[in-house]
Design a protein around this nucleic acid. Structure first.
Lengths: 339, 339
DNA sequence: GCCTTTTAGTAAAACGTTTTACTAAAACGA
DNA sequence: TCGTTTTAGTAAAACGTTTTACTAAAAGGC
């Protein structure tokens, strides 16, 4: 199995009797007022003819840049993240960058391994949804290893870093307020017991609204590991049994809501008469559910553009990555019959 | 912003007074019975101490290998593909490879561009769901450019290539048979007007079953571009109006089914009494729908393992990539109340 | 016509590995 | 003891770029 040997600058140089340097200048559009029109033309024609493409490993070795951006996400099979990925990929490609994605599974060790690997691969920037308790590692990555980092979906206190997040506190509050106005008074929050800002903020938003209205709070907090298991259903079931007066639930993530909906269906609990529902994150399943589920939706397309474009910007004028790109987007309440 | 200069073999060599060659041997575990225990120990200790990691661009340049596998998929935000990606990524990582994904959007031009780009990046293998009418390009990629290629979700006639697909014809047939046995006699097929084997085979399977039972066939074939648009709903609506006797539908893809379900809901058509439903591909939305939708489910985990492991195998003993790895998986009918 | 500047280009080093071909010293065999 | 083999290691080329520093020839200035 002999591959046709790939053509290199040296080959072009030999063939055309022109120095490698000149070829390089032309390939990189640095030939302007340096190399004559005719030579440029001759080289460009030849390049087109033999379909020459520079070897990116060599470029990367020489320049220290890879034109690679990594998108490290909690779980690429989560539709929220994969939708973001899809959009970013598009824009990156258009800007001559490639996006690599990978899933951290919210594990610290795995995240560290992955970061290590991508540093070796000389990626130019990290766009990352860091796992819980990752502040030290992140700070090191940014301030000791001087990598370009854009944090997504969560943020940390205590050191400056770029991030793009949803206004989670306000969004949760808005959801509770809408539920309250629909007449419900025993509003529960089903969330995750995590220190991630995303999850903490949603919980705080819920509590703020509950306190404003002087209501009793009902909180069910899952362990991360339990969220996607069958076990989860049992937990919700018990929670509802123990608190029969609950007449509304705000789910902090779409996965939690999925399990919640399964329980409500099995128990034949009517939505919204017996229990009203709002969940974070839009998904087909919510729109097509009977009745359709109200959600706090995140502006996917804007989030994605902001993430990738800010990153590309920082990459462009690398000198002053001051790590002060913070952007907070508002959630939108999509009202459906579940409320 | 000055990055701490990364340490190289040369640095280690200078520091320890040992030649670069020796370092390289040790790093690559080729030191066995060649270099003395003590030297190996000394180098390994130092490497651990300074946390040296080889520069992969240099490795890639020198060896021509990148340890990169690209997964080019129709659309990474399709849950079927992202689930596959998630699983493959895991296995690849475990084997010291990295997976890059990207979406072709089923466009030939874009696919070609992407392939070009990834060849420049020296990816070691392509796992790809090629777009329609891509046989010539694919054949060239495999037999002229001698790339390692694994085709997924579809295959072509006329030249030998590796592929992993579902047994689409039989699966569709099985679905129609199940529908028939539930008593329905006017069974429609809503698919896509495409030459992709996936879509053709599903249609043929439908027709075979229809012919066996001597039923009338009702086919609605979408253009690719229409599938995800709102327009799609109108088309289905018209189709059902024009063929009022239809009492069951087999959807060829999950996206089509989504639009179908929207229409049935709007028109308040009862499932399964008025119209029974089966769709290809399992999704949360089908399980949680009221009533739950029956599906032909693909064995995601097995598909993913087969894809990535076969690819890794070919990579291991590259000499004879005979392009004769063909694997066909059976679909499973998950019966739910929609049938 | 001679000195200076500009134009159009080139040579060579460097990026960090891997790998082939080599060698000095030690061990071995008789 | 002397020639041969083995051991433990090394020098140097190569992979394909980019970039700095250089130069020969042409043009310009007077």
């Amino acid at each position: 199995m002999k591959r046709k040997k790939k053509i290199s600058m040296k080959d072009i140089s030999r063939e055309l009797g022109i120095s490698i340097t000149t070829i390089s200048f032309i390939v990189n559009n640095k030939a302007e007022n340096k190399i004559s029109k005719e030579v440029i033309k001759r080289v460009e024609d030849y390049i087109a003819k033999v379909d020459y493409k520079p070897n990116s490993s060599a470029q990367s070795l020489r320049t220290g840049k890879s034109k690679l951006i990594v998108f490290m996400v909690e779980d690429i099979s989560d539709p929220f993240f994969s939708a973001i990925a899809r959009r970013m990929e598009e824009i990156a490609f258009y800007n001559n960058y490639n996006l690599i994605y990978c899933s951290t599974g919210n594990s610290k060790e795995r995240t560290l391994e992955l970061i290590q690997l991508f540093k070796e691969r000389q990626v130019d920037a990290f766009i990352i949804t860091p796992p819980e308790n990752f502040q030290l590692e992140l700070e090191k990555l940014i301030y000791e290893e001087h990598q370009i980092v854009m944090v997504f979906d969560r943020y940390f206190e205590g050191f400056k870093h770029n991030y793009v997040v949803l206004e989670n506190r306000g969004s949760a509050k808005m959801a509770v307020e809408a539920i309250y106005k629909s007449g419900k008074r025993n509003i529960a929050f089903i969330g995750i017991d995590s220190e991630l800002s995303t999850l903490v903020d949603r919980r705080i938003g819920y509590l703020e609204a509950i306190n404003n209205y002087q209501l009793k709070d009902y909180q069910l907090l899952f362990k991360f590991e339990q969220v996607r298991t069958l076990e989860g259903k049992g937990i919700i079931e018990k929670f509802l049994k123990d608190n029969e007066e609950i007449d509304a639930i705000l789910f902090a993530t779409n996965n939690l809501a999925l399990n919640g909906l399964r329980v409500l269906r099995e128990k034949k609990i009517e939505i919204p008469n017996q229990i009203a529902i709002v969940s974070f994150d839009e998904r087909d399943v919510f729109e097509l559910h009977s009745p359709p589920i109200s959600v706090i939706s995140q502006p996917i397309s804007e989030l994605a553009s902001e993430l990738i474009e800010s990153t590309l910007n920082i990459l462009k004028k690398e000198k002053n990555n001051s790590n002060n790109m913070q952007k907070v987007f508002s959630g939108e309440l999509i009202r459906r019959e579940s409320l």
